[in-house]
Amino acid sequence: MLTRALAILLLCVCLPAGALAQTTKLRVSTNQNIDAAAFEAAKANGYFAEEGLEIDTTPVVGGAVGLPAVAAGQVQIAASNLITIVLGVKNGLPFKIIAAGDASSSAPPDLAGVAAKPESGIKSGKELEGKRLAVNTRNNIIWMFARAWVEATGGDLRKVSFIEVPFPQMVDAIRQGRADAAFIVEPFLSVGLKSKEIEVIGWPYATVLKNAPISQWVASKTYIDQNPQVIDKFVRAYNRGTDWINENNRNEKWVSLISGYTRIAPDIVRTAATPLFVKSMDVGQIEKSIELMRKHGLLQAGDRIDVPGLLYRTVASQK
């Protein structure tokens, strides 16, 4: 009885101090590509540690296991992209975006472009009619913007066939004539361009939606409700990472950080175009993306998405 009372007393006295001193363990699922740059910067520079967070990363490559892992409570925070997040929310999974990741730029060169052989004569969606356009996966963000670009440049979507080719193989697919064009992301795009065997014929993001939201950081509503301080700390540290990435853009420290966690050779990192790393999200941009999702059949007319409800306060505020 006495020990119990003592314990409660101790708890009351120590709680504020204890909350500061104690480290919280967080498991985070990340994609080991350029989108994770700000996160990796925050980790490497010790920003998470300064907030008392111990980060255990579960890196994923080329896959989409982040959101299922959050839903299953396996990881607390995961990197994902707006399309996948919205589809998850539509299916009743209670995700919230806690930190903005990155966005496409407003003018070329962008983080991804449509490329074709120079001698093919393909310059727009119109010339792709009856031809094959490669995307990495159907029903994702790349596929959706590729479709929107074909339409915006005069192509008839019913006449263009979309084939699935993983990003690393896209340049080879064009070279060997297995695809007539491909929507390729960096760094594969700039390496392919160096060979002079392909050229960029369009920038779907800049054409369809400038500064399109690309990747975001997500947690489940349950976790956020139970651990609001942890989320605050994570986002604070993460945003410092974003600042670091933007301040050090393309200097040697920046190149070695990105080359270090992606394992991409420094020379390739130096020449590849990068996304914009942002700290907040604009409701209008999200609504435009959702409109595109409806137009291309990823959402049905009856699906209601509460856009402000997608954003946790750490990402909605324009600080």
Binding site: Q32, V60, G62, G63, V191, I264
Partner: peptide, 21 residues
Amino acid sequence: EMIAGSSGIGYVIVRAQYAMQ
């Protein structure tokens, strides 16, 4: 390991593809 990996030989194969190695 390729689909849901963060270690092992399958993960290394996919990572090397995406790192252009």
